[in-house]
Amino acid sequence: MFARNTKIVITLAAVAASISISAIYKATAAEKYGFGRSLGEAEIARYDSDIHTNGKGLPSGSGNVELGRETFALQCALCHGENLEGVPQMGARSMHEGRRDIEKLPYASSLFDFIRRSMPLTDPGSLSSEETYGLVAYLLNETGVTDNPNLTLDAKSLADIKMPNRSNFIIDPASRFTAEDLEDK
């Protein structure tokens, strides 16, 4: 144990002195316990369902406002209300105002990711990629982010959407990140 700690300390000191803080994370992986099983790409893909802000992770396929409208009526309106006003008895708040205001989201990916991971509440993960693209198109149009009744979204067009409120997000300095660190690249 002593030898292990000493080695890490020496490695840390050397790396911190020579390169950058972020490199420390890599350098400490000197010794291995060897527990766990390595994963292949196919196996990871089964679990890796999240969407990054640059669109990485978005599935193939596409969906339009019309498909979104139909899907919303069938799968979402019971809780979220026919006009996105929210049904308090079902626990859903308005998507037009306050914290759930879709117009205020920083990225369209946040919306796609959440619908795909958590909705509908009683059967999450049951929506197809097409239905999810369609729902995002429908919701962006209904909340005035876009104004195109024929909007069709796919991986590329969804990633290209610039949300109007993005610049109003400020970063808590205690997070040790700045707005510049988190600028879109």
Partner: peptide
């Protein structure tokens, strides 16, 4: 980069 997930950008 961070994900800006639903919970971190809304609630």
């Amino acid at each position: 980069t961070p994900w800006w997930t639903h919970h971190e950008v809304t609630e």
